[in-house]
């Protein structure tokens, strides 16, 4: 059955994936399981990520937060031995499967990585490259300026557009990577611990930026920092390690997915409660 005619949120009121009030789901996973070789990384995850919200994925190390995130733009395909079962939808279209072109998908589902990874090119070309290779026919200069402005970086770099992106500070590099992602006009931005390599001031700037971007984009952020999840996100998904299977591996499962204020004040799942109060993880 195809995913495109389903009002997924209303028809599938799974307890793990309650609909966010007043928002439709843009990314949907249903009964998603992932293996790397013989190691199961995720088991039976069902989640519906609401549009124009910031959704945080939290949980202990190795519980599959990044794996889940990378499923949505097929970056896991690059890992040898990766295998998944279940359904993944983006805007009602399937994400996985041989008929889906990951190149097209990745333009619409952008990604910001843990470590700032600007290209060893000029600031200008860092932003312009993605648009150019996607066949952008508009005014590149205008696009570069607009993207840098939206990433709150323009004022700091407008005089050094032809300097290398690697000459910027760590926080500026990360915002440059965000600008680069914005330049290809994605609908969703996946952020994999975007602030873990940044100092508190740079972190605050990125968090403010996310708040500004929320109006136009759907943001999914993986974070180890529970204060950050609390500060920035509207919805929070808490992943946990399942109990050990026969071979000792513990796949990740979705323990709870709720509005952030609910999850952090009145968690329903005892494992979530233990995690957010610091007793495990």
């Amino acid at each position: 059955m195809s995913l495109d005619q389903q009002p997924i949120v209303s028809r599938n009121p799974s307890p793990a994936a309650p609909p966010a009030p007043g928002a439709d789901a843009v990314l949907v996973a249903r009964d998603l399981s992932v293996w790397y070789g013989s190691t199961q990384a995720l088991r039976g995850v069902s989640i519906a990520i609401p549009r124009n919200r910031i959704t945080a994925l939290i949980g202990p190390s190795g519980c599959g937060k990044s794996t889940l995130l990378r499923c949505f733009n097929r970056m896991n395909d690059l890992i040898p031995g990766f295998r998944m079962e279940g359904q993944l939808g983006f805007d009602g279209d399937p994400v996985a499967g041989p008929e889906v072109d990951p190149v097209t998908l990745r333009r619409r589902v952008g990604m910001v990585f843990q470590k700032p990874n600007p290209f060893p090119k000029t600031v200008y070309h860092n932003v312009a490259w993605g648009a150019r290779i996607n066949g952008y026919t508009g005014d590149l200069d205008e696009l570069v300026e607009r993207s840098l402005r939206r990433a709150a970086l323009w004022d700091e770099v407008k005089d050094k557009l032809n300097r290398s992106g690697l000459d910027l500070s760590g926080g500026q590099q990360q915002r440059l990577c965000i600008a680069r992602t914005l330049a290809v006009e994605p609908e969703v931005i996946l952020m994999d611990e975007p602030c873990s390599a940044l100092d508190p001031i740079s972190t605050a700037r990125v968090e403010d930026l996310m708040e500004d971007l929320k109006a136009e984009y759907t943001i999914v952020i993986v974070t180890h920092n529970m204060q950050q999840a609390r500060r920035v996100s509207d919805m929070t998904a808490c992943l946990m390690l399942d109990e050990a299977r026969g071979n000792g591996h513990r796949p990740g499962v979705l323990a709870e997915f709720s509005p952030t204020d609910v999850l952090f004040t009145t968690p329903k799942d005892p494992r979530t409660e233990a995690y957010i109060t610091g007793r495990i993880g």
Partner: peptide, 23 residues
């Protein structure tokens, strides 16, 4: 060549040939 460079380029919707040629 650092894998982060390839991933950054692929995540923007580049084809493999574009990543190889430009990065």
């Amino acid at each position: 060549v650092p894998p982060s460079l390839r991933q950054a380029a692929l995540a923007l919707g580049a084809t493999r040939w574009q990543v190889i040629r430009d990065h």
